[in-house]
Design a protein around this nucleic acid. Structure first.
Lengths: 295, 295
DNA sequence: ATCGCCTAATAGGCGAT
DNA sequence: ATCGCCTAATAGGCGAT
């Protein structure tokens, strides 16, 4: 199985990769379309997103005896880890709502984002000449009021690269990238291809859309307790071919990726980087979109 | 938020808990219905489940440079960690397919299973007199050919308990259970309530259905490589009220839960247990159902 | 057959400078 | 503002007895 279809996949891959390097505006059009679609679906269902997110606080009597434990360096103790609330009531909900407009297939992969699936739609045909499918990679990146910075932190399995695939018997690999900060820098080893070719020949460029729910801690402002949703930020990170080939965003904006949150004990191949919202906005304003929750 | 609605929730909870203790057959009917529904959905879409699961092997050229690393004690090196393949192409796919028959809401909770959501259906009204909703908890428990034992391993956030909730200002808690083996025994601290009451008064008993995909390793039998799907086992573990109150399965079958996979360094409250398939089958044959994949 | 030894990958709060 | 220190929770392969 590992070695079946390699010739076909390699041939289609090489053609498709060259095509998107020659026609980056088509990849960008797919990214813009899906970024805006994501924002629209959330806005159109915002009450439901907020209601299901906030239910977690009201359900306190059912989990308060078994809260997720504090973690990290010197937790202050007034915050409840809220990761799973966003993953379900934002991430999985979005996937479910997308299902009513697109054809979804849960293609198996041994690693990658929380939510990732093949999305098929005739809509894509007006945006590019090659395919009616994309592989949508999506992760939820929750933060509280003390950590709502202008970035997200990405691991290697959440970043696509230049996708070198030389011969059918070899495997695809990505060249290293740099995370360049003002005081420090390190390498980043992206682990995701810029596009997948399925057994049936489907061409599926990878689209990376991150959902960043920001919650409040009511205890900071009142005597009430709870961690209600404050806003949802929708972040679209460019495909690896756009980052490295054409238009080669990483060369124009060398600090688009900057140092991440890992300590020195982390293996170099696994180190995360931060992605700058300011520079993403310089690329396109639609790459950082905020949805405020009415209070 | 943590303290709003507590009086209403406590009152409804107390009533519903007493009702299901008096009428355990209604909880069991919900479990049986959803176990069989799960099996039916998988069987009716088996080709798609198998195809998307197995695509992971064919996509080898795209991930082989970045495989998940071997882990655990003395890995032999011929196996690729395959956890995520099952979670997406079995677990998330099942959720998506359920969505076409039921109303789903992704209710926020700070902890719990991989897939969990409120399921609403008029179908439930013929099975019990109290509610048209359940909270479905589902985890994928993948194993390969060298680990396909007659059990699954559950963590505390995957087990519901007796659900004691004394007064509105206190929190619900569960009494400890025992995991009793032939040579050893330990305590289990279930962390999930047997039922949730939402802000709007919805009564949602917790149903636990586990999906256990079993994959082959072709390299064990041939010169080929790949980890294709061999079968899917659908396991329905009783709700905490059935385990501890009426019929009190844990007293009739004290080894239903037996020692898990954790070592001695694990905090006692977090220790996992194994659940015996033999004893589950003694309760009801539909609690362990196998779906074989044609080859 | 029993049971527990053992480690990769994920995530984000928050301190230190 | 920058960046990295720091830990909970999850999972299942496979060895030891």
């Amino acid at each position: 199985m590992f070695n079946e279809h390699r010739e076909m996949m390699h041939e289609v891959y090489t053609h498709a990769r060259n095509y998107f390097i020659q026609n980056p505006q088509e990849l960008i059009a797919l990214e813009e379309y899906l970024a805006n679609k994501t924002v629209n679906i959330i806005r159109q269902n915002l009450e439901e997103f907020v209601s299901d997110y906030n239910e977690a606080s009201f359900l306190n009597p059912f989990w308060a005896s078994y809260p997720p434990e504090d973690r990290g360096r010197k937790p202050r103790g007034d915050q409840v880890p809220w990761i799973e609330v966003g993953e379900h009531s934002i991430g999985h909900k979005l996937t479910r709502l997308m299902n009513s407009e697109y054809t979804i297939r849960e293609i198996g992969l041994p690693s990658g984002s929380d939510d990732r699936f093949l999305l098929k739609s005739n809509d894509f045909e007006s945006l590019n000449k090659l395919t009616n499918s994309v592989m949508l990679f999506s992760d939820v990146k929750s933060v509280g009021p003390r950590d709502d910075a202008e970035h997200i932190v990405l691991s290697p399995y959440q970043i696509s690269g230049d996708g070198i695939w030389n011969t059918p018997s070899e495997n695809m690999y990505n060249n290293k990238m740099q995370a360049i900060g003002k005081k420090s820098a390190h390498e980043v080893w992206p682990a995701i291809p810029p596009l997948y070719i399925l057994q049936n020949g489907t061409i599926a460029p990878v689209i990376h859309i991150y959902l960043k729910p920001v919650y409040n801690m009511l205890s900071l402002e009142s005597s009430k307790h709870g961690q209600p949703l404050k806003k949802i930020r929708v972040i679209t990170v460019p495909n690896g071919l756009l980052l490295t080939q054409n238009p080669n965003y990483l060369s124009t904006y060398p600090s688009l990726f900057y140092p991440g949150k890992d300590d020195k004990s982390k293996a170099p191949r696994k180190v995360r980087c931060r992605v700058s919202f300011d520079l993403l906005r310089s690329l396109h304003t639609w790459r950082v979109q905020d949805i405020e929750v009415e209070i």
